[in-house]
């Protein structure tokens, strides 16, 4: 059954492009009395024929929802009657929302900073050793792992056993070996948020490393040779010659990770479900959507995420426009 639907879907897609092109050629044949005019007209229409499915999907799946979400954020729980700013006022006064905003800001500072830092160190280090490619693959690997899978992996790391039992989580094992008391890490506020952030840092560092490594290799040799001749130490070369030259790339990595962070959801849902002070916006939104059944409040939370993304969106569009010129 599924295989049949798969075939129909893919086949239908191919058919559209083939048939619509044939139809266009029939409608404005490139021969006969009006060949020239026909070709011109067909060339005006064809781009839109090529783009129609993409534009239609983009409009329905990404543009339309933005407007509906804005509309729903001014409506009540069922989306039936207008409630004005009520949802926004409620949001500002809601403790869970404040907690989410606070946590999201923590995530926004910590995760991009730590990922970029480790990525930069990993890139610098792996470019200088013989087994660098292997090392890169290993650090990059978590990129392929789902957030849920990563959550399981790290939950095992943070696992707690009561005193007297053998610790099976490596964090507690190390902690007790150093003379500490075994902790229920995921239920201790503030620490637990950072432990969740570590999971995302672990995933994103590989991304940062790959991009930054390419940038480091793109640095002109002459600048480095000159600094060696001037007697700069390796650390000085790295900090004062290399890093300033890849500043633009660092910024790109930073913003890309920032966007991932704003949407972080799976890790929080599966590891703590926002309890013990770890709530974040995306999970708050999900909570109100499915457990609260309140489309008004859920949409309002989504709008807040959108607003936080908007500056980066504008920055990206500007950069892309400048590049196109």
């Amino acid at each position: 059954m599924a295989a049949v639907t798969i075939l129909i879907g893919v086949f239908g897609c191919i058919c559209y492009f083939f048939l619509s092109n044939i139809a266009l050629d029939r409608l404005y044949p490139a021969s006969g009395p009006n060949a020239g005019a026909n070709i011109n007209r067909a060339n005006q229409i064809r781009p839109w024929l090529f783009m129609f499915p993409a534009l239609a999907l983009l409009t329905v799946y990404l543009v339309y929802p933005v407007f509906v979400s804005v509309y729903l954020s001014f409506m009540d729980a069922e989306g039936d009657s207008f409630v004005g700013m009520d949802n926004y006022i409620w949001l500002i006064n809601d403790d869970k929302f404040r907690e989410s905003m606070f946590n999201n800001l923590l995530w926004l500072v910590f995760v991009p900073a730590a990922s970029t830092f480790f990525g930069l160190v990993a890139a610098a280090v792996t470019d200088r050793i013989r087994w660098g490619n292997f090392a890169k693959a290993m650090i990059f690997m978590p990129m392929a792992i789902s957030f849920v899978g990563a959550a399981v992996i790290w939950k095992l790391v943070y696992e707690y056993r009561p005193d007297g039992q053998e610790q099976i989580g490596i964090l507690n094992a190390v902690w007790t070996a150093m003379g500490g008391q075994a902790q229920t890490w995921l239920t201790s506020p503030v620490v637990n948020s950072f432990l969740l952030m570590i999971v995302l840092v672990w995933i994103q560092t590989g991304f940062a490393m790959v991009i930054l490594s390419a940038a480091l290799r793109g640095i002109p040799e002459e600048t480095i040779e000159a600094s060696i001749l001037d007697g700069a130490s390796p650390l000085q070369i790295f900090m004062k010659i290399k890093v300033p030259q890849i500043w633009g790339t660092i910024l790109v990595v930073w913003t890309t990770i920032t966007i991932t962070v704003l949407k972080v959801f799976d890790i929080v849902l599966t590891m703590t479900n926002g309890q013990w002070g770890t709530q974040v916006l995306a999970n708050l939104m999900f909570d109100w959507m499915f457990r609260g059944n309140d489309t008004g409040r859920a949409s309002t939370a989504a709008i807040v995420i959108m607003l936080m993304v908007t500056p980066i969106m504008i920055w990206n569009i500007r950069n892309a426009a400048r590049e196109a010129r």
């Binding site: 729903l72 969106m313 990206n316 569009i317």
Partner: peptide, 20 residues
């Protein structure tokens, strides 16, 4: 349209869930 596509790159999924 190209600029629009670049802008849409970062639209958060969360926004699209309820309307869709």
């Amino acid at each position: 349209i190209v600029a629009g596509v670049v802008g849409l790159l970062v639209v958060p999924l969360q926004l699209a869930l309820i309307p869709l």
